[in-house]
Design a protein around this nucleic acid. Sequence first.
DNA 1: GAGATATGTCAACAACACTGACTTATCCGC
DNA 2: GCGGATAAGTCAGTGTTGTTGACATATCTC
Lengths: 208, 208
Amino acid sequence: MSTTLTYPHRIAFSVEVAIALPHRATTEAAGGGEPSPIMEPHFPDRNDGDDLIELLFFAYRDFVADPDRILAEYGFGRAHHRVLHFVDRYPGLTIAELLDILRITKQSLNRVLKDLIEQGYIAQRTGTNDRRQRLLFCTDLGIRFAEELSRVQMRRVARALVDQPRRGANDDPGEALASAQGFLLAMIEPEERAVVTRLMARRAKAAA
Amino acid sequence: MSTTLTYPHRIAFSVEVAIALPHRATTEAAGGGEPSPIMEPHFPDRNDGDDLIELLFFAYRDFVADPDRILAEYGFGRAHHRVLHFVDRYPGLTIAELLDILRITKQSLNRVLKDLIEQGYIAQRTGTNDRRQRLLFCTDLGIRFAEELSRVQMRRVARALVDQPRRGANDDPGEALASAQGFLLAMIEPEERAVVTRLMARRAKAAA
DNA sequence: GAGATATGTCAACAACACTGACTTATCCGC
DNA sequence: GCGGATAAGTCAGTGTTGTTGACATATCTC
């Protein structure tokens, strides 16, 4: 069986220019007299940066539109999805951890969490180490719902890696995956990157 | 002057597995009898897809947090930013075009647009070809404000391309830019990709 | 036992999206 | 030039999701 990869849309705008400056220039080594400015990376052509900013907007717009359609059928919103997703993927998450992930207030979280608990998608258990904590878990119903929502987003992401226009010899979707993960991770606030990787490592560990 | 590129955070989770299937398998060519299923791309390891989904969430979360801080000082919100951004980058945009970009209702747009017009950031001109249209332009004030908001996002994106962990020989930030643009474009709804590239091409043309 | 911490809750409010209905100005085809 | 379609503006009501501020309860830690 022969298969063909199709690249339906090639990028029309210029991508040839590179970032001129590294994150920090090591000018300190040169001499002692000059002040040591932190060199900011920048785009030689502003349009490149703007294109990326806009593409992120468009990508996210369509990325959330998929689950939104399903959520509407259930009478839930995006906020419910986010909670369900993280509880599904990180069983035993505490309220405090969830608040730090979502960056919302306790009151905002509680509203949607209460909906999900009352309707049987999420269950709470008192922490064993610390009985003040409420550990969050998905019920079977919750797992199935999370799965259904995940499916459409997974499909879009997988398709993106396949459809993604290829540059030169870099023709491997595994490369595309690593590349996309690297870029998105680097978009996260630097001090927060370790927090995110640690969170995700937790999942990898649980699977093993 | 010698410079060093620093790669502060390497990805800890596995990225070695590839997408198994192309967007559409051309099984139609083989025979007539079998139904022709549309083969969906998928992840051999679900965790890879989930990681990407979560990274997109975290990246977007921090990406919008930058301008949000500035907007709060001006008494504006995210919705104002989106309008200002697109009007700034695509002068002469019509209401209908803006609605299609933002995917919101006329009423939602009007509320924030009115704020921006009243406070002198955006001006309207009646269309010349079609006098029903209201063409949108940024005032000098609007351009400066858009620039200020753009700067922080541009900084994050440029830094991401430099900080992004490199895979093998692929050590060029220009490559990283093209790669990120390709991925994000491919995340857009397929029928909409051409619309977006056409929009962006408009800007490239205007610059020439 | 005292203070810190994790969580839950009440109330009010703001931003931003929605629907539905209606108006005005303009364009385009006959 | 008339009539229907189209671009835009507006009024009114509603829902989701975020916020602040204040306060209660249970539990941990010292």
